[in-house]
Design a protein around this nucleic acid. Structure first.
Lengths: 202, 202
DNA sequence: GTTCAATTCTGCACCAGGTCTGGTTATTCT
DNA sequence: AGAATAACCAGACCTGGTGCAGAATTGAAC
């Protein structure tokens, strides 16, 4: 049973996020204060911070959630972690299972992030947490430092892939074209992970 | 000619950093305000911020400066970037060329960083900048995305190595023992980079 | 339909990191 | 010595974020 209370909460949350993104897109992240966002969304500042833990979270709420660790732990038996991850990004690049991928809204969000150093740094921190989770997921398959190294390299590669993808979108490429380029990049990245630099260009 | 003015400046800068590190080590980074640091160092807050751009910089001023990009661009002709980097970390682990490596002071600094999530995140951001520089240094040798991928993987591996090394120091291992362990880890990490996951455990 | 408890929201004071300003002191140059 | 310049200081001010007392809203019991 979803009561009126919860519906209103969800509504308020959405309103705050939407108002914030609109303001940030219009005038830039740093030039908008949380007081303004709260006023525009018609809530008190304390209420805003009860919905979102920080100003950054207003932009980063649904970004960069790949759950790499989950993909590894839930992979079909008999496959390597790397193969499972490669398959995941292949399907994503093929346009299948794009998750909650609302192109125009996402592009706006990503543009805000790219334009603000503070937000880029915050996004980076989120990835750091994912790296730790991935290390845990890899530990059964690789001893000690190796799991940490692999996790670090995988998240590094994935970040690079996503940055390249987003950069294309921001440059105006169509989602289809960007996805096609991503498909090729995925193979490059995972080949590099799998066979190392000695097998790559130079 | 190094005048009195510059000597005093350098002296003030050192005093601020030393006082800050002492306070942070004693009571924890988050529990000390910059006002307290300024008061203890007998300068005005504005003066403190003219020497250090942020509170974080008080701790991170001489940390994590590997200049990976420089190592790559200045490598002897005929060697690959990866070989140059491996050689660099080998010599470091062998205790040669430890740079400004004052163990007790550094350990104190590192402990403060490890203890504070805010500082860890900030340290991460610094590494991100180094990654961009490294991408530039690799671009002549690898086309487009490959340079970015390599740079990301290298910095990821180096970060992991340094974290493991510092963790040993913080756990009480002697610098010599930690360096020996690091020497082995360096080979593991660079073998992984060179030959990929397919050549590693599993 | 009224009452009552639990949530939620508000308004406001407050804290900490950082920036800005105007005026004061110390160093350097002539 | 005196003028120019650099550093410093005290303090006001802004912004992100938290804490708190009380008002408003919801859900449920009667």
């Amino acid at each position: 049973m979803v009561g009126l209370r919860e519906r209103k909460k969800e509504q308020t949350r959405r309103r705050i996020a939407a108002v914030a993104l609109a303001l940030f897109a219009e005038r830039g992240y740093d030039a908008v204060t949380v007081n303004e966002v709260a006023a525009a969304a018609e809530v008190a500042k304390a209420t805003l911070f009860s919905y979102f833990p920080s100003k950054e979270a207003l932009v980063l709420h649904g970004i960069g959630e790949d759950d790499l660790a989950g993909i590894v732990t839930r992979r079909p038996p008999g496959t390597t972690p790397l193969a499972a991850l490669r398959a995941h990004f292949r399907t994503f690049a093929a346009g299948q299972d794009p998750g909650p991928f609302d192109a125009p809204a996402l592009i706006g969000q990503v543009r805000i992030v790219f334009d603000s150093p503070a937000l880029s740094a915050a996004a980076h921190t989120l990835l750091h947490r994912e790296r730790e989770a991935l290390t845990g997921a890899l530990t059964p398959d690789a001893p000690g430092l190796l799991a940490a190294l692999m996790a670090a390299q995988i998240t590094a590669a994935v970040t690079t892939l996503k940055e390249a993808f987003f950069r294309r979108l921001l440059a105006g490429e169509s989602p289809a074209a960007a996805a096609a380029a991503l498909a090729a990049d995925v193979e490059t990245a995972f080949d590099l992970l799998e066979h190392g630099f000695s097998g790559a260009g130079r």
